[in-house]
Amino acid sequence: MGNYTLKTDNVPKELLIILDIIKGNKITTELLIDTDWKLFTQLLIHHRLYPLIYPRLKDYDQSFFPSHILQIISYKYRMNTIEMLKLSGEMIELDSLFTNNEIMSIFLKGPALALEIYGDISLRTSGDLDILVSIDQLESVNVLLCKVGYKKDEYFSTTLDDWKWRHHHLTYYHSEKGIKLEVHWRLNPGPSKEPSFRELWERSSRVSFSGHSIHLLGKEDLFLFLVTHGARHGWSRLRWLVDIHKLINKDVDCPSLINRLKKYDYMRIGGQSIILSNQLLNTSIDKYMTNEIISNCSKKLANEAVFYLERMINLHSEPLPEDVSNFHKKHMFHLLSFRQKLLLILSFLYPYPDDVDVLPLPKRLHFLYFPLRPFLWSWRRVKGLRKQTISS
């Protein structure tokens, strides 16, 4: 990585201590002076790192950390283990359900990822299950899930076919089991280029749960998915970066990985992820990968990501503070390659479901939304401004 150093001056001391523990650095009592233990605990929970920290705390004397902090971490660790066991059982049931109905499925994260790259499901958290299927089998999947008690969250309109590429997953919830499930037909929201389901299936690996074989993305495809997911969320939870750290140490085929990053326009965020992993977690990076993937652009993006580490940001908790919202929008645009930026701009010309709300047309006339798009967009803007004027 040369002489490059990430600018972490404004990152909370408590988060740096957490990172030191994860890296295996010996913590001294002097380092812990004036530690804000409430913030320490909040950061552990926010970044979902408490399962990884808990086993390492056993290397220290019982009196080294405050007893109430150890109790909180111990409790969270036990509860997470129970949750991961519950998700593991549901994952096996869903995989059997789909297999028996000739539906090919690949689990993206959750217990399968934890076992594959951590070697132990208790060392990683997961709030839900994520499964990838072919878009051609979405309707069959929907019917099966509804039969076994899942209910779909209709959070976007399917009136126009734009949902197939603008969005990338549907959300289901099983109220009795308390389990959330995301069914993906793409790895990422569009507009973006990515491998087909068939390619991902043919390259998928398998992980065994109690003798049951679960399909997981192959290592290089998994890296592609994890870096795009983490970057899209600003690496605002360091658990995602630890995933990268663990995966890189799993004998990833570097030439194949780099070819895939180039093919799908993710070189800059691939570089961002390994810089962050190297600088924050001491990840050892293959020299070939460093030479091929690190650029001035990826260094700039890595430093921008520090913004999310200087405070606790939950991007799903809206409304976001104005400064966070403005920064995040700019950072998301910076992550895009020139081709991706062009596709994004062109995508605004494609009709949105809001256009249907403004001017409902029968399906046979939906083609008219394309030439009418600029006028409908302008009309919504005018109506929005009028409402603001009246309310003020």
Rank of each mutant, 00 (worst) to 15 (best):
L32D: 09
L344P: 01
S175Q: 12
F375D: 03
R166M: 05
K23C: 13
S74H: 15
F209Q: 11
I17R: 01
Y150M: 05
S140N: 15
D354H: 07
I274L: 14
G384W: 06
S277T: 01
G230W: 02
S63E: 11
K330S: 06
F40L: 10
G384P: 04
S67W: 08
L123W: 03
S298I: 06
N296A: 14
W201H: 12
F375K: 00
P255K: 07
P362G: 08
K329V: 00
K86Q: 14
N142A: 10
S277R: 01
D9T: 03
H168W: 07
M79W: 10
R311Q: 15
F223I: 13
P319M: 03
H212W: 14
E93Y: 13
W377N: 04
F65W: 07
R268S: 15
G230C: 10
C254L: 15
L32R: 09
K7T: 09
L160V: 02
L108E: 08
L115A: 11
S67N: 11
K341C: 07
T171F: 02
I244N: 03
E14I: 00
K13I: 00
E176W: 03
R373G: 02
G24T: 13
S325G: 05
K341M: 13
I22T: 07
K329I: 05
S213N: 15
K147I: 12
S284A: 12
L216R: 09
M1G: 12
L181G: 05
Q388W: 00
P55F: 05
D286H: 13
S205G: 09
I244V: 12
S298Y: 06
T158L: 04
S96E: 15
E310T: 04
L70C: 10
V207R: 08
T81F: 14
Y264M: 01
L217K: 08
Q272S: 04
E14N: 01
I285S: 10
N282G: 05
H47C: 07
K330V: 09
S67A: 13
N80W: 10
K13R: 02
T158K: 14
L276C: 07
N142Q: 12
Y266A: 13
L226K: 14
V358H: 02
V11E: 00
E194P: 03
I72H: 06
K164L: 05
I117S: 06
E202K: 15
R239K: 15
L281T: 02
N296Q: 15
Y352L: 08
L138Y: 11
L144N: 02
N249M: 05
D59N: 14
I293Q: 10
S256L: 14
D136C: 02
E304Q: 13
I248H: 01
I53H: 06
K109V: 13
L346I: 15
Y150G: 03
L320F: 03
Q71H: 12
I117W: 08
F209K: 12
R373S: 03
C254K: 15
I345F: 15
R381D: 08
Y77N: 08
N80I: 06
T28C: 09
D120A: 05
I390M: 10
Q42W: 10
E292M: 14
F327P: 02
S205A: 06
E90W: 03
K7C: 02
E154M: 11
S347Q: 11
F98C: 14
